[in-house]
C-alpha cells in the first residue's frame, strides 16, 4: 500500500519526538502536578499558575509537552494492538490511534487558547 509506505516516517518522527519529550519532561510534571500539589507538599497559587501558563513561550512549551507524547502513545498503542494479534485490523487501528492523537492536539490548542 503506497500511502502506508510513505506516511510511516512521518508518524515515526512524531513518535520519536514525543518519546523524547515524555522521557525528559513528564516525570517532573507528574510528580509536581499529580502528587506534590494535590497532596499539599507544595502549593502553586491559582494566580501564579495562571500567570505562568498565560505566557506565550510557556504556552508553546505546554503544547509540545502535551501534544507530542500523544503521538508517542498512538504509535506504541497501535503496535501493542497489532502484537496482541489484531493484525487483520491494521488500517482501522492506525486510523483510530493517530486520529485520537490529532483530536488530542486540537483539544490542547483549544485549552491553551482559553488561558
Amino acid at each position: 500500500m503506497a500511502t502506508r509506505k510513505t506516511s510511516e516516517p512521518f508518524w515515526w518522527l512524531l513518535f520519536a519526538a514525543g518519546g523524547m519529550v515524555a522521557a525528559l519532561l513528564v516525570p517532573v510534571h507528574l510528580l509536581v502536578h499529580g502528587l506534590a500539589v494535590p497532596l499539599g507538599w507544595t502549593s502553586i497559587s491559582h494566580a501564579r499558575m495562571l500567570a505562568l501558563a498565560g505566557h506565550p513561550l510557556v504556552k508553546l512549551y505546554l503544547f509540545a509537552l502535551i501534544a507530542l507524547p500523544l503521538y508517542h502513545w498512538a504509535h506504541r498503542f497501535r503496535f501493542i494492538l497489532e502484537d496482541l494479534g489484531l493484525r487483520g485490523l491494521r488500517t482501522p487501528i492506525a486510523i483510530l490511534c493517530y486520529g485520537a492523537a490529532v483530536l488530542g492536539t486540537v483539544a490542547t490548542l483549544w485549552v491553551l487558547w482559553q488561558i
Binding site: T6, P9, F10, W12, L13, A16
Partner: peptide, 10 residues
C-alpha cells in the same frame, strides 16, 4: 535505518 529513512524523508 529508521532514523536514516525518516531523516531522508524529512
Amino acid at each position: 535505518s529508521k532514523l536514516a529513512g525518516a531523516t531522508d524523508w524529512l
